[in-house]
């Protein structure tokens, strides 16, 4: 990897108005075991929430509950005071989710994958595909099928997808998986930029991600 300074692709305008993600009395049961109950959390624009816990304590379950992919056994998640399960909530357009499975098709190139996934967003992504890959220093991988990329490169592509998303809330499950130290640095930088622009981030990570001046909260499971 070359060590040229990062091109500064920063949002021209931040997000406007306040935003709030809130969880109330969340309970999650897997099989016969109660992973967590009466869980409360809240975060506003410009703040990050890191979900902490050992393996098997339900970090991924909570992440999936926040995305609405899984329904909590008890309790509600609300976005701007509206329950995300309300039919009129239109919550899906407000967050970008990166799970353990990165959402990239092996046969397609990063350009094709990001083009398709960009169309699933509420509006056109604010940053071009090439520019977003440049951010993660994989601009040269634009037209190589994802199957031929390493796990770390694929994770960078998946993060580029999140970065160019117009969504205000990022929900990241282990975003630093397979990344090398420089890439974790880039990840920390773009997360910080997103928060400074008024975004929100919920994430889990076993690696330390230094968010610099931004307020980060913890939720211990």
């Amino acid at each position: 990897m070359h060590s040229s300074p990062l091109p500064q692709a920063v949002r021209k305008t931040g997000f406007s108005g306040p935003a709030r993600l809130e969880g109330r009395e969340i309970e999650c049961i897997r099989g016969h075991a109660c992973l967590f109950s009466n869980l409360e959390f809240a975060l506003e624009s410009g703040t990050a929430l890191q979900i902490l816990g050992a393996n098997g304590t339900g970090k991924t379950s909570l992440i999936r509950i926040i995305t609405g992919l899984t329904e909590a056994d008890q309790g509600t998640i609300s976005w701007n005071q509206v329950n995300i399960r309300d039919p009129g909530a239109a919550y899906a357009g407000h967050f970008s989710y990166l799970g353990h499975r990165n959402g990239l098709n092996d046969a397609l190139t990063p350009r094709e994958n990001l083009h398709y996934l960009g169309k699933l967003e509420a509006s056109e992504p604010w940053l071009g595909i090439g520019d977003s890959l440049e951010q993660f220093e994989i601009g040269n991988c634009l037209n190589i099928p994802c199957a031929r990329l390493s796990a770390g490169q694929q994770q960078r592509v998946a993060l580029a997808r999140v970065y160019r998303s117009p969504a205000r809330l990022w929900v990241l499950d282990e975003p630093a998986t397979a990344l090398d130290a420089p890439a974790i640095g880039i990840l920390a930088e773009i997360m910080t930029r997103h928060l400074l622009a008024g975004g929100l981030i919920v994430y889990t990570s076993h690696q330390a991600i230094d968010l610099g001046p931004v307020t980060a909260r913890w939720l211990q499971l």
């Binding site: 046969a107 094709e112 398709y116 169309k119 509006s123 056109e124 604010w126 940053l127 520019d131 117009p166």
Partner: peptide
């Protein structure tokens, strides 16, 4: 950064349908 100004455009349902079909064909 030409694309930055396009941030307010919402893809039409037809665009999403078409892009989805062409992606699967690819």
């Amino acid at each position: 950064m030409v694309r930055t100004s396009a941030s307010a455009r919402k893809p039409s349902p037809w665009t999403v349908f078409r892009v989805s079909v062409t992606r699967d064909l690819a």
